[in-house]
């Protein structure tokens, strides 16, 4: 395996006048579960399509497992698993038939990995794919993908539309599978509690640009949540260092700021705060605040 499983350099993709990816340079090390987050339109799916050779970049380069993405061979594809949010599978086929087909197609088929994952679900071999519930289909799809023994597994919002039980079953079957340990997983999701639970590495994309690449804990440590009591109006956002987001709840001002230490309390007091307390931030709120910073508002768009 090469030193990085995914490497992009100044990767750009333009659709008409809009850039879906903008000078994205990214290197993902092998192993572990890497979470990819970003608002809708951040360029996550476009990135996956380029990585798998289904879109050509406007500029820059992209490599997967050391191979240029535009020249992936069938052997390379055998090493990259992909699960999308629709869990696209041939609906007319029976579970056993589809499993047999994939087993025949993939030379490194791992039956134990398949059984390990599918054991979490009540899926019968004689059932047709169209007869499976959404959760069962997701589990079946994951089982197929892990049984391929991929070196890289890309999961693009795999739990979208699943209920709580199915979501938990999916995450457990992913986390506790031995096959997962042997490959690099790219997990794309909007569900921060999932990311918080499974991810070792967090990549934040915004408007096609790489905004952050660190562990989830490190990322949370960068974002701080300050609650203060300021009579009248607080400071103007433009004047707040590292400003991400502010809220006013029950007469108290909540400030989310990036890369600010205890000195930020002094800033707040200097702007009329009677007291200022720093609170721990969950990954969900940290990402939410981080992405809200540049979120287009009617004022901005004007």
């Amino acid at each position: 395996m090469s030193e990085v499983v995914i490497e992009t350099r100044h990767l750009s993709k333009r659709f008409g006048s809009k850039f879906a990816l903008d000078q994205l340079s990214l290197a993902i090390a092998p192993g572990r579960i890497h979470a990819l987050v970003g608002a809708n339109g951040a360029g996550k799916s476009t990135l996956f399509r380029i990585l798998l050779g289904f879109l050509s970049p406007t500029a820059g380069s992209a490599r997967v497992l050391g191979r240029d993405c535009s020249a992936l061979t069938p052997q390379d594809r055998a090493l990259v698993g992909y699960v999308n949010e629709e869990h696209t599978l041939p609906e007319w086929m029976r579970v056993s038939e589809l499993k047999a087909m994939r087993q025949h197609e993939y030379p490194s088929w791992n039956s134990r990995a398949f059984d390990e994952v599918i054991g979490h679900y009540q899926v019968l071999p004689g059932q047709r794919v169209r007869e499976l519930s959404r959760g069962e289909r997701a589990g079946f799809n994951l089982a197929l993908a892990l049984a391929q023994s991929p070196q890289l597994l890309i999961l693009d919002e795999p739990t979208l539309g699943l209920d709580v039980v199915a979501k938990r079953a999916f995450l457990e079957s992913l986390m506790y599978s031995n096959a997962t340990e042997r490959c690099t997983v790219i997990y794309c999701s909007h569900q921060m509690e999932e990311i918080e639970r499974i991810a070792d590495d967090l990549i934040v994309l915004e408007r096609g640009r790489l905004m952050s690449h660190s562990s989830p804990d490190d990322f949370c440590a960068r974002v701080s949540h300050w609650i203060c009591d300021i009579p009248f109006m607080g400071p103007e956002p433009a004047t707040i260092p590292g400003f991400l987001m502010r809220q006013k709840l029950d007469g108290l001002h909540h400030y989310f700021v990036l890369d600010q230490g205890p000195a930020f309390a002094e800033f707040l007091r200097a702007n009329g705060a009677r007291n200022a307390n720093c609170m721990p931030v969950s990954l969900d709120r940290a990402v939410n605040a981080f992405l809200a910073k540049n979120h287009a508002t009617p004022t901005q768009s004007r």
């Binding site: 399509r49 289904f54 069938p74 055998a78 992909y82 999308n84 696209t88 599978l89």
Partner: peptide, 14 residues
């Protein structure tokens, strides 16, 4: 459609 196309082509076959 993009997703079914990806599922069809992304396999160890030419």
């Amino acid at each position: 459609r993009p997703n079914p196309w990806l599922s069809l082509i992304h396999r160890p076959r030419s």
